[in-house]
Design a binder for these strands. Structure first.
Length: 456
RNA sequence: GGCCCUAUCGUCUAACGGCUAGGACACGAGCUUUUCAAGCUCGGAAUCGGGGUUCGAUUCCCCGUGGGGUCACCA
């Protein structure tokens, strides 16, 4: 980095005008990873100069979301621009005094402004006197970027001497806080020349800039509410794990240069490199996120998995699941998030583990088999074999060993299918050995007895 | 539309200017305790187009095209 002898300071500076979303989360993550990698620090700063649009609930959402991801800031309490107005005012004053900015008499503009967000207009605002020059800055991701600021005109930096606006506040804060690296979304790239102009007028040092690509919706458009969940916390609520989200987000627009895909936050902080950040936008792909989540979810011990489901399950379901840890593992294997796991349980598909199976005589017959008598005989034979296994060593291995020679002789499907259906009552289910192990000897034999009676 | 950024499988991406363009997700097929899921193996799948530079371009340059961003008294 160009700032060898200066300690790196980055910042995440969201505006609390909405919930923390996927894109903001990744920007925060990249700032965090870069700071950690460089042995520097990271500041959380709330850009809340627009009091009309900022809300406390959004602040809370941002702080909570970042904490959930495990991104910790060096400032305990987030800095708020609304509490730093005096600082901006003094710089504003000096800009006006030096002639770099001026009080501008506004004429009535076109009432149908293109953005449709027209609000009460002031008769007077403070504009920055644009020197109309060419600004070239070095972007750590994109290389040299140049603008002709003449295209920008004399832009507004304060509504009044008392009410500074975004561009001024950002420049003053970044300088005041000693921010060395401004890492932010690509949507800010065109703000950069304005901010550099203000910096120069104020005599501030120019930080390093890195504009990271945007996260896009599947149709390559900007990710927005109409594309479903983008609020970070909605992923938490859907039962995604923060480790999975961090891992996925890190690899969206960045890569380690190796084939490794699974990273802890600490590993990421170790590997992160701005020069390996992609230049173009990346589509947010839930399928891949789910794949990551599955990896992390499977690794959790059964008891932790159950803890995630505690609030969803009935007391009885909870008791069953706690008594049979293998059951939760079995269901988790079929889902990618805790939300899906909860759905799987409430769908009733695995109810035969929580109560008696419901039988349909027809599906007890293996495909092609029409002979109920034969099926009954095989079930009875299988039951007999299982009966001989001692209860304390009744597991998938012993059951398989006991059953296998017979199943081979009769035809595996001829024995295994009716056995499995006798235990589950279902056309689709885990294999019979897995079910048997969860049910235990007593319950297994009971169910076989009931199934055999169906043929009487 | 002006300005700015950008372009490798459907998606995320790898490839000091130099092997048959690699990996992952997704998809398809096969295997396993003949169902479901997971897992394993295999497979299909890409350098936007046109000009240059070069012995040689995914890679460098130009033009075009596509995509994105931005043009507020929001941030």
């Amino acid at each position: 980095m160009a700032t060898n002898n200066t300690r790196v300071i980055t910042r995440f500076a969201p505006s609390p005008t909405g919930f923390l979303h996927i894109g903001g989360a990744r920007t925060a993550l990249f700032n965090f990873l870069f700071a950690k990698k460089e042995g520097g620090s990271i500041i959380l700063r709330l850009e809340d100069t627009d009091t009309a649009r900022c809300k406390k609930e959004f602040e809370d959402s941002i702080v909570r979301g970042l904490a959930w991801l495990g991104i910790v800031f060096d400032n305990q309490k987030p800095l708020k621009q609304s509490e730093r107005t005096d600082l901006y005012k003094s710089h504003l004053k000096s800009l006006v005094e030096s002639g770099a900015a001026y009080l501008s008499k506004e004429t009535e503009g076109d009432p149908t402004s293109s953005n449709g967000l027209q609000r009460a207009k002031r008769a007077e605002v403070i504009r920055f006197k644009n020197p109309n020059k060419k600004i070239i800055f070095h972007d750590l991701i994109r290389g040299e970027v140049s603008f002709n600021t003449a295209d920008l005109g004399d832009f507004v930096i304060a509504k009044s001497p008392e009410e500074p606006l975004y561009h001024l506040a950002v420049v003053v804060d970044d300088s005041d806080m000693g921010v060395t690296h401004v890492i932010r979304g690509e949507d800010h790239i065109s703000n950069t020349p304005r901010q550099i102009l203000i910096q120069e007028a104020l005599g501030f040092k120019r930080p390093q800039y890195a504009h990271i690509p945007l996260i896009l919706a599947p149709d390559r458009s900007k990710l927005s509410k109409r594309h479903g969940a983008i609020a970070l916390e909605s992923y938490r609520d859907m039962g995604y794990l923060p480790e999975a989200m961090v891992n996925y987000l890190a690899l969206l627009g960045w890569n380690p240069g190796t084939d490794q895909e699974i990273f802890t936050l600490a590993e990421l902080a170790d590997e992160f490199d701005l020069s390996k950040v992609q230049k173009s936008g990346a589509i947010f792909n839930v399928e891949k996120l789910k794949w990551f989540n599955r990896q992390y979810m499977q690794k959790l011990p059964a008891k932790k998995k159950i803890a995630f489901l505690e609030k969803f399950l009935s007391a009885r379901q909870l008791a069953v699941v706690k008594a049979k840890l293998k059951l939760i593992e079995l269901m988790a294997e079929r889902t990618a998030t805790f939300g899906e796991l909860d759905e799987l349980i409430s769908s009733g598909e695995y109810d035969y583990f929580f109560g008696k199976p419901i039988y349909d005589k027809k599906i007890l017959l293996w495909k092609g088999e029409k002979n109920f008598v034969k099926t009954k005989t095989r079930l009875a034979a299988a039951r007999k074999l299982l009966e001989n296994i001692p209860a304390d060593s009744f597991n998938r291995i012993s059951v398989k060993e006991a059953l296998w020679p017979y199943a081979e002789k009769e035809g595996r499907g001829e024995v295994l299918w009716p056995l499995r259906v006798s235990l589950s009552g279902r056309e689709k289910s885990p294999d019979p050995f897995t079910i048997v192990e969860i049910l235990g000897k007593e319950e297994t034999l009971k169910r076989l007895t009931v199934a055999i009676k169906l043929f009487a």
